[in-house]
Amino acid sequence: MTTAQEKNGLKIMVIDDSSTIRRSAEIFLNQAGYQVVLAEDGFDALAKVNDHNPAMIFCDILMPRLDGYQTCALIKKSQKFHSTPIVMLSSKDGLFDRARGAMVGSDEYLTKPFTKDSLLKTVREHTANLEKTQA
């Protein structure tokens, strides 16, 4: 474990059916010292979320089997995870998509392809209080 990981080591879950997006997010987050849990779709995420207890979740919208809106709604309905920040990921940047994300409980919306800076800025904004309590 690197010094950065020892410093904050928060777990961030990335749910996306694109291996490229998952890998990019994993690299960016690992370099910043976060632990990363990857899930290929909503069902995979639901199976992993309880075991890993992520501090924050990035969730793609368009996925097979269980889409991001359904995944977000199911996670937010859980007593344990209702306050866990969930950021929707999508290549669409429409008002309808953002509103639908907010309706199912997402905390923010990040357009793909995201940059390292935009991803890390989003994580910092949503985990600032958690990092202080763990420091």
Rank of each mutant, 00 (worst) to 15 (best):
F96A: 13
L89E: 00
T111Q: 06
L74N: 08
Q79G: 14
F43N: 08
P113G: 02
V87W: 09
N30P: 00
S78H: 13
R98W: 13
T115M: 11
Y69E: 04
D97Q: 02
A32G: 01
E6D: 06
K77D: 15
I86C: 01
K121Q: 15
P113L: 01
T71G: 07
E6S: 06
L119D: 01
K48C: 07
K132E: 14
K48N: 05
S18A: 12
A32Q: 04
E6N: 05
Y69R: 08
C59E: 02
I75S: 00
Y34K: 03
M103A: 15
L74T: 10
D67N: 15
N53W: 07
P113K: 05
I21C: 07
L130S: 09
R22I: 06
L66K: 13
A99R: 07
R100K: 13
I57P: 04
D17W: 08
H126N: 10
L110W: 11
A135Y: 13
A128H: 11
M13P: 00
K80W: 08
A128G: 13
E125T: 11
L120T: 04
S19G: 02
Q5P: 02
D117Y: 13
T111F: 03
D16C: 05
L130N: 09
L120E: 06
L62D: 08
A135G: 13
I27H: 10
K112R: 12
G101I: 10
D41P: 03
M88W: 03
M1W: 06
S78F: 15
A39L: 01
N53C: 07
I57M: 03
T71V: 12
E125M: 10
D117V: 10
Q31K: 12
N53F: 10
C72P: 03
L95T: 11
I27D: 05
R100P: 00
V104H: 07
Q35W: 06
Q35T: 03
S18C: 05
K116H: 03
L110P: 05
F81S: 05
A39G: 09
I61G: 00
M13I: 04
P64G: 09
D51N: 10
S19F: 10
F28Y: 08
T71A: 10
M13W: 02
Q35H: 07
L10Q: 07
L74M: 15
A45E: 01
E26V: 06
H52N: 07
K7P: 05
L10P: 03
T111L: 08
E125K: 11
M56S: 04
D60H: 04
A128K: 14
M103P: 05
I27N: 03
A73R: 15
H52D: 01
